[in-house]
Design a protein around this nucleic acid. Sequence first.
DNA 1: TGTATAATTTAGGTATGCCTAAATTAATTT
DNA 2: AAATTAATTTAGGCATACCTAAATTATACA
Lengths: 223, 223
Amino acid sequence: MLTHAAEDYLKSIYKLQEKGGTVSTGILAAYLNVKPASATGMIKKLKTMKLVSHERYRGVTLTDAGRVIALEIIRHHRLLELYLFKALGVPWDGVHEEAEKLEHVISEDMEARMDEFLGYPTADPHGAPIPDKNGVVTQTEHIPMTDLQSGQSCVVSEVSDTDPVLLRHLGSFNLYPGTAFQVKEVAPFEGPFTIDIAGQQVVIGREAAKHIYVNNVQDTETT
Amino acid sequence: MLTHAAEDYLKSIYKLQEKGGTVSTGILAAYLNVKPASATGMIKKLKTMKLVSHERYRGVTLTDAGRVIALEIIRHHRLLELYLFKALGVPWDGVHEEAEKLEHVISEDMEARMDEFLGYPTADPHGAPIPDKNGVVTQTEHIPMTDLQSGQSCVVSEVSDTDPVLLRHLGSFNLYPGTAFQVKEVAPFEGPFTIDIAGQQVVIGREAAKHIYVNNVQDTETT
DNA sequence: TGTATAATTTAGGTATGCCTAAATTAATTT
DNA sequence: AAATTAATTTAGGCATACCTAAATTATACA
C-alpha cells in the first residue's frame, strides 16, 4: 500500500498533466504546498516504485501503473464528494475538504457501495468527471467561460472545487453544473461578465470566470 | 490536532480502563500490537500533553482532557459503524475495520450529519453504547453470557466487534443485539452452551460465549 | 533478606516526509 | 560565448512512531 502523501503526489501529477505540458518539480511542489526539494525526494521514491518516469531537470510523467493509482484516488475523491452531497447533505463548498481526507482511507467495498447508491454517476457536484472502476474517464467537451462573447448562451458544465468562498459565491447565484445562462455584456479590458440566469442579472468577475467551464454554447440575440 | 496513533492510544487506554484495573504499559502495548518500549514512548508524549497521568512502573490513567478525546474517537467509531451498516449496507462483520480508519478523519460536521441521519442513536450494530456529543455514555446493564444457567432466557445486548469470523458465525444464527434466546443446556466442565433461538437449536462454544453479553435474564422452564 | 524473574524504561536505530541551505545544472541575456 | 539568473538536486536536520537490545526497577520466592 502507498502512503497518503505518495497518493497525493500521483493525483497531483495527473491533474497537472491534464492541464497541459510537462510537470516540473517546481510546479508540482507549488501545487502541493511543499518545497521543491521535498518534491524531488518523493519523485525519487515514486520512480523506484515505477509509478513515474523522471529525468533530472526534465519533469515527471506518470507511468501506466502510476496513472491507474492516480485515477483510483480521483475516483474516490469525486464519488465521496457526490456521496457526501447527496446522502449527507454536505454543502457543495464543503465536500472537497472532507473528501480530501477520506479518499485515502475508504475500502474498495465502500467505493462500490457508494457507486451503487448513487446509481453509477459520471460527474461530481462540481461537474468533474468520475472515472469508472476501470479508470476510464469520460470528460464532456467544454470551454472556459472566459472564452464567451456577449450574446452567447450556454450551460455550466464544471466549476473548480477547491475554493469554498468561490463556491458559496457561485452557489448564491445558482451557478451549478447544468444551470443555463446568457452573456449580456463583457466589460472591456478583461473586465467582468454580466450574465442573465433565469431572468436575474448577475455580475461575474474575471477571476471567478476562470474557474467556470461551459458547453452547449449558442449565439443568441440580446434583447 | 492529535496524530492518529495518539488517538488510538487514548481510545485503548479508555477501553482497558473500562474492563477493570490499572492499565500497565505491557497490557496497553499488547492491546495495540506494539512493543512495550513503543508504548512507553507514546505515554511520555501524552503525559506532556496532559492527556494521561503516569508514574513510572505504575500504569497509565486518562486525565479528564484525555477521556474527552477518547470518547470523541469512540463516538466517531460507533456512529460510523452504525452508519455504514444502515446507510451503505456494510455487513456487521465489516464495519469495524472500516470505522477504524475513518474515525480519525471525519469532521465534526460529518459526525453531526450521521448522528442526525441515524436519529441520534445510542448503540452501534454490535450493541455497544454510542457516547453522546457531550461524551456521556449510557451503558445498558448486562452480564456475560458465560454467567447464564440452563433454563434461563435473555436478550442479546452486546457482542464484541473485532473478530469478523466470530461475527459472521453469530450472524448465521441471527445472534444480533435484541435477539432473544433460551439456554437449553450448559455442558459441564466449561463446555459449550446449547440455546434455542426462535425454535432453532444452536450450540455456542465457550470462547464465542465470552464475547456475548445479555440482559433481561429470566428463569424459565425447560420443556 | 537476598536473589531470581518479570515488567518497564532508556538508548540507539529505521522509515516516512517535511524543512533549510548549499551545490549543481540549465536557460537566458548581452 | 560568457555571465547572470532560475530551476533543480544534494546534503544534512527535525518530528513522528515504530523497532531491538540493554539497563533499570519492582516483585516474588526461598
